[in-house]
């Protein structure tokens, strides 16, 4: 990055707030703020993951049995989709750093579209699960000795993927907004903090899925 003085249009975009001495301080603070927020998010998912771990340790067979019936193909495709979206996101930040306006906007748009694809596949999966009658509380028709364990597994499954899906939805909104702003020339090599911070959030949402995927889809498959 060059240390040339800011052009007037850059200064206008920076919205340097009075509590900051320099644009650099403001940008770094924004990124740090997002990291602290992500720490909160880790614990937010952590509460549910603790519940999952606790119950899986209590009911190992019941959990394995229920997990075997998840849609591993869709789950795997979705993992690929989301990982790819993280790649395009990282590339978008890279492009923004180098002031490549069109590339930034297109890569951000690709990220948002991959996010939508993820949600679409997730919706398909939910639809199948509704048809199968494994939605606890609303449409649940399993019987057998471990039916109540399966109900708890699917309850946690829907809570975890539901909260994750909510995060993906918010992420798509943010990424799309960044794509529009990038297309309109809202960023430059001197100022692309919003893209960077949105990227952090998007990678976090991806990372949560990296934990959910094995816990939900792979847990029961190695056993008999």
């Amino acid at each position: 990055m060059s240390e040339t003085p800011l052009a007037p249009q850059d200064l206008g975009r920076l919205h340097l707030e009075p509590q900051y001495a320099t644009a650099r301080q403001q940008a770094e603070t924004a990124a740090f703020g997002m990291w602290v927020f992500l720490a909160t998010e880790v614990l937010f998912f952590g509460g549910m993951l603790f519940g999952y771990t606790y119950l899986r340790a209590t009911f190992p067979e019941g959990f394995a049995e229920a997990a075997r019936e998840t849609h591993v193909i869709i789950g795997t495709i979705n993992t690929v989709v989301l990982l790819t979206s993280s790649f395009t996101m990282a590339w978008a930040v890279h492009a923004a750093e180098r002031d490549r306006r069109r590339a930034t906007a297109l890569l951000l748009a690709a990220t948002a579209l991959l996010g939508l694809l993820f949600l679409g596949l997730k919706g398909l999966e939910y639809y199948k699960e509704w048809e199968e009658g494994v939605v606890p509380g609303l449409n649940f028709h399993k019987d057998g000795p471990n039916a109540h364990v399966a109900a708890m597994f699917y309850y946690l499954y829907f809570m975890l993927t539901g909260v994750h899906g909510l995060h993906v939805t918010i992420g798509i909104g943010l990424v799309a907004l960044m794509a529009v702003r990038a297309w309109r020339g809202g960023f430059s090599a001197r100022y692309y903090t919003p893209v960077e911070v949105t990227g952090l959030y998007w990678h976090f949402v991806d990372l949560v899925w990296i934990f959910l995927y094995p816990l939900i889809y792979l847990a029961g498959r190695s056993g008999p």
């Binding site: 614990l43 998912f45 952590g46 509460g47 549910m48 909260v163």
Partner: peptide
């Protein structure tokens, strides 16, 4: 955040009885 998600789980459990 742990409190938030725990209370959310309680609310869902109360509403849907699961």
């Amino acid at each position: 955040p742990i409190l938030a998600i725990t209370l959310a789980l309680v609310a869902v459990e109360r509403l849907l009885k699961v």
